[in-house]
Amino acid sequence: MDNTNSLYAGRLVRLGPLDHEKDPPVVARWTNDPLFRSVLVDVARPLSVEAVRRLLEKVEKQMEETKNLFHFTLRLKDDNRLVGLARIFWIDFHNGTGVLNLGIGEASDRRHGFGSDALDLLVRFAFNDLNLHRLSAWTGADNLPFIHMAEKSGFEIEARRREAVFHNGRYWDMLHLGLLRTQSEKKQ
């Protein structure tokens, strides 16, 4: 096993920094898929390369200034190809809490275990390095792949905010999932 870079490297993917040259065109392509909405913007809309470039610069600036955001790119270990974005945000170091969010950009890259691998990396990073006590993740009740993936990593549904989110012509429940460090350690 490769232990040299284990903080950022999983089985299939690694957590990496942004590449402001090469990443914007790839991410701009992803924004045409409404399923990718939650990772960068609240409401689904296709973004131009320039809009994405500015957005990603803003993200890194925010990371620098607020200190309560960690944003990563997800890259394949094999060929370093960008496959997704992930972040831990709203970090409250004082209470030891944070919120996690991740998305795999291309439909053809989903269901290969990349997200699951990245999720475990982020969980380990949050608990072992950021010293957080708990992690939250929010998603619409229709996002079954994410819910299943999170549950596999030990997340439990803690709250169901009824009819709190609207898309595809109807209201959906908003699920708040949570994982405690104490539970995560038992699982490993």
């Binding site: 004082h94 209470n95 030891g96 809490t97 006590h133 708990r134 939250s136 549904i157 803690e158 709250a159 169901r160 905010r161 009824r162 009819e163 709190a164 708040h176 949570g178 405690l180």
Partner: peptide, 26 residues
């Protein structure tokens, strides 16, 4: 308002962990 869930261990105060509740009304 109806209780919609419980965010476990959300607060740390005086060495004690406690929960935050979500409530909502339609």
């Amino acid at each position: 308002f109806k209780l919609e869930g419980r965010i476990r261990d959300f607060l740390l105060r005086d060495g004690q962990r406690s929960d935050m509740l979500h409530m909502g009304i339609l």
